[in-house]
Simulated assay, not measured.
Amino acid sequence: MNYRFLPLLLLFFMSFAPKSTNNTDPKLLANTNTVSLAAKIELVYNSLDANDFALPQMECFKRAMTGFYSLKQKGIVEKDILTVIDFSMSSTKKRMWVIDLVSNKILFNTVVSHGMKSGSEFATSFSNEMNSNKSSLGFYTTGETYFGKHGLSLKLDGQERGINSNARSRAVVVHGADYANPSILKSQGYLGRSQGCPAIPEALKEQIIQTIKGKSCLFIYHPSGSYDIASKLVA
């Protein structure tokens, strides 16, 4: 048995244990919980098995884990798989990570497309509106798979009202696409863009979709002040 991950597993399961009800000062308790959560996330990050991939930025990872724990505690997320997309990065970079939080291992790290109206090389503008052709930030849960015009695809349910809550009605899904293949970078200098979907390389879509389907957490990050103000999950 590999004992390396036992401390992480203990921290993970303890995070969902019922909170003690005593006469502790609520302000002190809140501060203690904040410190504990930050310490827990830092421990997970520093213990990640990168699997020869680059690590996500700490700030992006911290926000992703904060929302994951919140959604997991509410029973909205069921699988201990976290997908992180960092739209502060160039589309030429591998800015999507799929992380197994039980083994604490990065399973995939790949390029991913943003919406055509969100920007060219960099995504800078985001929307929850129908027909905007823009990406939406924030937390999603993965839904069911289906076969559409891009073959095997995965539906997403946005968990943040006004930020990504129209994802399903907009048909914002995870799918493979030729324009999301890294080879296109040589011809146009940046990855092809979608109508708002996080599109991934065709060669990886089967593996990634099968791994993350069925109530796992997906987080799309950008250091946007408007998102920080609107989001309730990373406040």
Rank of each mutant, 00 (worst) to 15 (best):
F53I: 01
E206D: 12
K62Y: 03
Y45E: 11
P198T: 04
G214V: 00
K19W: 02
F147S: 13
G196C: 07
C197V: 06
A235N: 13
N166S: 06
A38Y: 10
F219M: 03
P18Q: 06
C217A: 12
F122T: 01
G143S: 09
T92A: 09
K74F: 07
N33E: 13
C60I: 01
L29V: 07
K232E: 13
G75N: 08
L11P: 09
S36W: 06
L29W: 07
F53T: 04
P223R: 02
R193C: 00
N23K: 08
R193H: 05
L191H: 14
K155I: 00
V102T: 02
T142G: 07
C197L: 10
K40S: 14
E78T: 06
I184V: 11
H175M: 00
L82I: 08
A64I: 05
P223S: 00
A230L: 15
A50H: 04
S153L: 03
Y190E: 12
L185G: 10
S47H: 11
F53L: 03
V112Q: 04
P201Y: 03
F139I: 07
S127V: 02
F61R: 02
V77Y: 05
A30R: 10
C60P: 05
S224P: 06
G225L: 11
E121T: 08
K19P: 02
S113P: 05
I184A: 13
Y69K: 02
L10R: 14
M14S: 15
